[in-house]
């Protein structure tokens, strides 16, 4: 079996385990390449269906194309699409750079807090109505007990320590030093009330694997990843103020694969364009312990 097939099958196995073991399951879709691959794997796992909701945390600082791409495929693929946000922080401008928050504080508000309260059902969730194509307030307020997330071990230090099934306590905290054992395809699927489990089917994938797989499967991705005509493209997608373009002429998926394999990026970390990582002493550990993806 080839490298990409091994990765694909293992990930599908994990997604299926999550589906069978968690009653209130959702998948986070950040619209980026990784979680889009994750979504593709879910469609494969369930033979064209996606039997759980996809949740997007909308910071409203996302680049516009990301949202139109999200809604297009939500409708086309019949996805149960839900988004959540931190309404209060957005209204009081507790944000960066137009408000008075630092980058890290902004991340904490618009992503970590929004995620925590959307998952728990305490804040409003908006669900797409396939008849109208518009989002409506979701009446379901039940907490999600299983959350599928597209993090990869090669992204940064703390992610390399993750489990496939990673428990979070009542405050969403990650107890890094005391993680459950995980072996022989047996995962942590039992959990106490009030806690939830993050599920990471893409842990073993590298950035190059992701692009080679997108190429092989012909998965549609946001056009922002390609040369915008000015010799610049996004390598990693986030909020507009904190994500920088990289200099690159890559205009197709194939170009990107070549660039990563032998070209200028074969040796430079992917998240080097993400400014908030540097504020946290080179890693995301502080944010991630508090529940950041």
């Amino acid at each position: 079996m080839e490298h990409l097939d091994i990765l694909e099958n293992k990930s599908i196995h994990i997604i299926r385990e999550a589906y069978s073991c968690f009653e209130n399951l959702c998948m986070l879709w950040s619209i980026g390449k990784d979680s889009t691959v994750l979504l593709w794997l879910a469609r494969k796992a369930f033979f064209g269906h996606v039997p759980f909701p996809l949740v997007h945390i909308d910071t409203h600082y996302k680049i516009k194309e990301m949202i139109s791409y999200r809604d297009r495929y939500a409708l086309e693929w019949g996805l149960d699409m839900i988004y959540g946000e931190n309404t209060a922080a957005l209204q009081s401008k507790n944000t960066y750079p137009d408000g008075n928050a630092s980058r890290i504080e902004c991340c904490r508000q618009l992503k970590t807090e929004a995620l925590k309260n959307t998952l728990s059902g305490e804040w409003t969730r908006y669900r797409i109505n396939h008849a109208t194509g518009k989002y409506e307030i979701d009446s379901n307020k039940e907490p999600y007990t299983g959350v599928i997330v597209g993090v990869r071990a090669d992204e940064e230090g703390s992610r390399s320590k993750e489990r496939y099934f990673s428990p979070r306590d009542k405050n969403n905290d990650w107890d890094v030093a005391n993680q459950p054992p995980e072996f022989w395809n047996q995962y942590k699927t039992d959990f106490a009330k009030g806690t939830h489990v993050r599920i990471h089917p893409l842990l073993d994938w590298t950035e190059l694997d992701i692009w080679e797989y997108i190429h092989r499967e012909n998965i549609p991705v946001v056009s922002l990843y390609f040369n915008q005509g000015n010799g610049k493209r996004y390598r990693s997608l986030g909020c507009e103020p904190c994500t920088n373009c990289v200099e690159s002429d890559a205009a197709t998926v194939e170009d990107i694969v070549n660039e990563l394999k032998t070209g200028k990026f074969s040796n430079i970390a992917e998240r080097s364009g993400r400014a908030q990582d540097k504020e946290d002493g080179g890693g995301l550990e502080t944010l991630r312990r508090e529940g950041y993806m």
Binding site: P180, P181, E182, W184, Q186, K188, D190, F191, A192
Partner: peptide, 10 residues
């Protein structure tokens, strides 16, 4: 190969 779960934990 099997695992034993004791009160939520492997």
């Amino acid at each position: 190969r099997f695992v034993i779960v004791d009160n939520y934990e492997i």
